[in-house]
Design a protein around this nucleic acid. Sequence first.
DNA 1: GTGCTATCTAAGCACCGTCCAGATCGGAGC
DNA 2: GCTCCGATCTGGACGGTGCTTAGATAGCAC
Lengths: 208, 208
Amino acid sequence: MTTAAVAESKPYHHGDLRRALLDAAEAVLVREGPSALSLRAVAREAGVSPAAPYHHFKDKSELLRAVAMEGFARLKLAMSSALARETAPEERRSALGVAYVEFAQANPALYRVMYDCARNADQMPDEHGEDVSAFQLVKDTLTEVAGGQVSELDLELTAIASWCAAHGLAEISKFEKFKPLKDALGGERAFLQGVLAHLGVMAQRKDG
Amino acid sequence: MTTAAVAESKPYHHGDLRRALLDAAEAVLVREGPSALSLRAVAREAGVSPAAPYHHFKDKSELLRAVAMEGFARLKLAMSSALARETAPEERRSALGVAYVEFAQANPALYRVMYDCARNADQMPDEHGEDVSAFQLVKDTLTEVAGGQVSELDLELTAIASWCAAHGLAEISKFEKFKPLKDALGGERAFLQGVLAHLGVMAQRKDG
DNA sequence: GTGCTATCTAAGCACCGTCCAGATCGGAGC
DNA sequence: GCTCCGATCTGGACGGTGCTTAGATAGCAC
C-alpha cells in the first residue's frame, strides 16, 4: 500500500531489481530504439530513482553488457531451434544462417546493443556458460556438411567466414539498395538463402 | 590580430569552417575514439563556440554523415589502389578484400562512424558521386575472376556475400578469440586471406 | 557609408551519466 | 521483543551533452 493500484508483489525494498532493470531495458529498447536506452530511462521504466541501478551494475556499460549477454543467449537458442527443425546437413546449414539473420532482423535494437558491446570489449559477451557456444554450433554444422573429413584449420576458417557473412548480412540486409533484388528473388528469405549459399566452400576444396 | 599567436590565415569570420569542422572531427576521432566525438568537442577542437557548427550542419547526425561519406570515399580509394597493384584476377580479388579489412583496422573509429551512419539511414552514405561505387568495384572484380560468364543475379548475390563477409571480418577480426588462429597462420594478413578465401564460390557453380 | 545577410557567440533548456549524503527497511543477534 | 547492521533506494548535485534563441560581428552589394 505504498503508492497506488499496484496490487502485485511490491512489498519491501523492491524485490529483484536487477531482473526488473534488464526487462525494463529490453522494453525501452523495443519501444524507442537503442539511442533512447539511457540509464535514466531504464530506471524510469522500472519505477525507481536514477541512482538505483548503481547498486546492481557498476555503470551503464555493465548493464548493457548484461543485456547483450542475454541477447546472445537468445540468439543461440534461435539457432539451435532452427537446427532441430532440419535433418539434411545442407538444409541445416542454410537454416542456421537464415535463423541468425532473421533473429537480428526481428530484434534489431537488441542486436545492435549486442555488437556495440562486443566491439567495445573486442570479444563476444557470449563466453560465460559451460555449455556449447553459438560459434561451436556453426563449426559442428559445417563439419556435418563436409562429412567429417576436414582439417581443424580449414573448419575454423570456414566457420569464421560464415559467421562474418551472417553478421554482415544481418547489418546490411535492410539497406534499400537490395530491395529490387529481393523482389526479383521473391522475398526476404529467398534473398538471405541466396546470399548465404555463396559461402562455406570448404567441402569443395580438395585439400581439406 | 584578433586573439593571439595564430599567425596563419584567420582573418575574418572563420574562413572555411565546414572543412575545419570535418578535420576537427577526424582529429578527435583518431585521438579519443568514437565515444568522445561530441559536437561540442568538435567545435572546441576547431576553436569555435558550441553553436557554430549549426550554421553548416543541420544537426550532429549530419556532421557524422559528412564524416562517414569522406570515410567511404577513402575506403573506395584504398580498394582501387589495392586492385591496381595486382594483375591476376584471383590476386586482385584477394587484395580487394584484404584492403577493405585493413582499411577498417587502420581506421577503426572512422569505420565505426561510417557504419553507425549507414545503419541509421539503412543505406551506405556512399551513393553520391557519379563515378563508380565501391560495391561496383567488387562486382567488376568478381566478374573478372569468373571469366565474364555469370548471370547478373548470381554476380549480385556473390558480391553481396563478399561485402558482408568483408564487413563482418572488419568488425570481428580484432576479437581475442582468433588470436591463436592468427599465430598458427603466421600473421594478421594470412588470417584475413585465409578467411576471405572461403567466399565467392560463384565461379564453381555450374548454373552460373 | 548604409543596409543585408551569413556567420558566430552567449546564454539557456532539458537530458544525460555519475557521485554523495541521508532515508528506509529486511534480517541477524540477543 | 528489541536493537542494530548493512544492503537498498531516494533526492540532490555536478559537469557534460544536443539543440534553440537572441544578439553581436563582419563581409559584401549598392
